[in-house]
Design a binder for these strands. Structure first.
Length: 639
RNA sequence: GCCGAUGUAGCGUAGUGGUAGCGCAAUCCCUUGGUAAGGGAUAGGUCGUGAGUUCGAUUCUCACCAUCGGCACCA
């Protein structure tokens, strides 16, 4: 029997050789470092016999792939420790995930945060014990019966759902065993000690809220302590840029009990908002959109007609009007309103594509548990627009929207964007034929726009398929923001038509699209992306003018007036404080520029400029400083 | 909505069955200091809300509200 190494070298072994034997034949170092092997790309336990010729690759700890394996083994380790410490706890599933692993348990009593260190200690103990791993294949019926007998009903249910053509493999680590696809390390020692349990949460069996709720324990696991520490530092860094913390520190916004899920924008935050809004307004304007404003409250009948009532009325804010005896609903989205604008007058095919844009204020009764700072709120503003067009215009409109969106993301500091195409969901309106058409057009248009994308089957909106744009922030987190949806249903439902070339009425196609999605959420993303250190054009306060001595107060007043006249957002600081103190305060406030003024500057009509994060200072003539700042403060689309 | 945790001054925190401290910020005074905290004084809290237990509750119990970590949801 021949196994071929990645470098092309072929080795001959008797049938039934193990990965261990192959590794040992190559070298004792490799034999020790090996975790598992890959046979023709398929993962295989080191101790499991190899029965046929194969391309073989030995995976060691150094391998990128080792992470996922360590995490999977760590999940088993967690389950072992929990069942050791908490007899009667049922195991369910425990996969490797980004940065770590989790395991879902069924237990009547709740795990407490105090349990985590105990469980972790037991995990380390089991690692030290180096429990050996063994793999067995059982007949399905035997396995189901066995797990039922030992009270592991969830496992029994899992086995029952394994396709009949697949082996039911049982992995033993010492005398603990679990149903598992594998592969696993030779012993628990190979997991190492670079792991940490991080949190406990509830989780539904099989991810379905209708099912029983289990208790999930999360952990993180790495190849070595250094990687673990780096991860923990990364988490700390992420906490430092939390938009809720920075929002308070930079006096951008606040939220309170009396307006759950809604944002009070303070002057600084609203400045940021308006800067972003005006940027989008200009970009959208030059792309041929017409901005409109539509009502917040609509008669329930409109939502029934659009189909939203059916699907979402439990998530809508309802306003009853006693005198009129009618029910109004606060709009959860802008499309029906835009269709009303489209429907005014008679539209000709010559007017298409007609692009109606609105910074539309929407309210949705989001589940309480979904709320998160300003990232997920109940009252939000979408940078919404609807493009009414013909079938033939879908591709061109999609393409130019993608360009517009990518341009905007780059301007706002995001270079990496992922695209997903979501197809028809189970609960939907419209015939399959129409969905075929909509999905086909969108896929074609997305390809025409030159975008790489992956599919998200079944995740589309109820009225049409969509593409979703996910950007990556400065520390590698992904945020879904933009979207474009193709809708062949809504215009027809709400009676929107145009007169075609043939003189007959046709329903237009409607493209729903947003660049930033929710203004609130996007500003949250911006805050975290920049860690509050905004580029000058976005910064709510662009320049702080601070005096060293009160003799410079009058000159400082002049400087501030000149900066404000030049359109620079400036604050004046003539407080009775030391320079050191002022530098610290304005640095912590993340003000991009600090101009320090003392007698010297007042006499020479200069300013000493200190840029945020830069210790070196520069002395400039006032006029030169102002023109330098003005040049840098120009929004990217006006440069 | 579900599981769990948390809620003390603007912010960050300590603490207790006998009506609460500390740091920063704030106010005033001294200091006019040249690039990440100068000094002193003062003021600020019905300890999330409501009920219960108790002679007495910020502390114990229950309910509710909000927030946080997840799950589920996201037109």
């Amino acid at each position: 029997m021949t196994v071929t190494l990645p470098d092309g070298k072929a080795l001959t072994f008797p049938r039934g050789v193990t990965g261990n034997d192959v590794a040992a034949a190559i070298g004792p170092g490799l034999a020790k470092a090996a975790l598992i092997v890959e046979l023709d790309g398929k993962e295989w336990d080191l101790f499991r016999p190899i029965e046929q010729d194969a391309n073989i690759r030995i995976i060691t700890r150094k391998d990128e792939k080792a992470l996922e394996l360590i995490r999977h083994d760590a999940a088993h380790l967690l389950a072992m420790a929990v069942q050791d410490l908490f007899p009667g706890t049922q195991v369910t599933i425990g996969p490797a995930i980004d940065d770590g692993f989790y395991y879902d348990f069924a237990r009547a009593e709740a795990f407490t945060p105090d349990d985590l260190p105990k469980i972790e200690a037991r995990m380390h103990e089991i690692v030290r014990q180096a429990r050996p791993t063994r793999r067995e294949v059982w007949p399905r019926d035997k396995a189901v019966q066995h797990f039922k007998d030992i009270g592991e009903s969830f496992k029994a249910e899992l086995i029952a759902s394994i396709p009949s053509n697949e082996d039911v493999s049982i992995y033993w680590h010492g005398d603990w065993h679990d149903l598992c696809r594998g592969p696993h390390f030779r012993t628990t020692a190979e997991i190492g000690d670079a792991f940490k349990l991080t949190k406990i949460s509830g989780a539904y069996w099989r991810g379905d809220a209708k099912n029983a709720q289990l208790q999930r324990i999360y952990g993180t696991a790495w190849r070595d302590k250094k990687e673990l520490d780096a991860y923990l530092t990364r988490i700390e860094e992420a906490e430092k840029r939390d938009h809720r913390k920075l929002g308070r520190e930079m006096d951008l916004f606040h939220m309170q009990e009396e307006a759950v899920g809604q944002v009070f924008w303070h002057p600084n935050g609203h400045t940021l908002w308006r800067t972003l809004e005006n940027y989008i307004r200009r970009r959208v304007g030059e792309a041929g959109y017409n901005e409109i404003k539509t009502p917040l409250l609509f008669d329930r009948k409109l939502w029934e007609q659009s189909g939203h009532w059916d699907t979402f009325h439990q998530n809508m804010f309802i306003a009853e009007v006693e005198d009129e005896g009618r029910t109004l609903a606060v709009k959860p989205m802008n499309c029906p309103g835009h269709i009303q604008v489209f429907k005014q007058g008679t539209k000709s095919y010559r007017e298409l594509p007609l692009r109606l844009a609105e910074f539309g204020s929407c309210h949705r009764y989001e589940p309480s548990g979904a709320l998160h700072g300003i990232m997920r709120v109940r009252g939000f503003v979408q940078d919404d627009a609807h493009i009414f067009c013909t079938n033939d215009q879908i591709t061109g409109e999609t393409k130019s929207f993608c360009e517009l969106l990518l341009r905007a993301y780059r301007d706002l500091g995001f270079d990496s964007v992922k695209v997903k195409l979501s197809t028809r969901p189970e609960k939907r309106i419209g015939s399959d034929a129409v969905w075929d058409l909509a999905e086909g057009s969108l896929e074609k248009a997305t390809r025409a726009a030159g975008l790489d994308f992956t599919f998200n089957h079944g995740e589309g909106a109820f009225y049409g398929p969509k593409i979703e744009f996910t950007l990556t922030d400065a520390i590698g987190r992904e945020w879904q923001c933009g979207t474009l949806q193709v809708d062949f249903n809504m215009p027809e439902r709400l009676g929107a038509t145009y007169i075609g070339e043939d003189g007959n009425k046709h329903a237009p196609v409607m493209l729903h699209r947003a660049i930033v999605g929710s203004m609130e959420r996007f500003i949250g993303v911006l805050i975290e992306h920049y860690a509050g250190k905004f580029p000058l054009w976005l910064a709510p306060v662009q320049v702080a003018v601070a005096t060293v001595v009160s003799d410079a107060d009058a000159y400082a007043g002049e400087v501030v007036a000149a900066l404000k006249a030049a359109g620079i957002r400036t604050v004046l600081d003539t407080d009775n404080q030391t320079v050191n103190y002022k530098v610290r305060q304005h640095s912590l406030a993340k003000t991009p520029y600090l101009l320090v003024l003392g007698r010297r500057e007042a006499e020479n009509r200069t300013v000493t400029v200190r840029k945020l994060g830069v210790e070196k200072q520069e002395s400039l003539a006032l006029d030169a400083a102002i023109s330098m700042l003005c040049a840098e403060a120009v929004p990217p689309d006006l440069r």
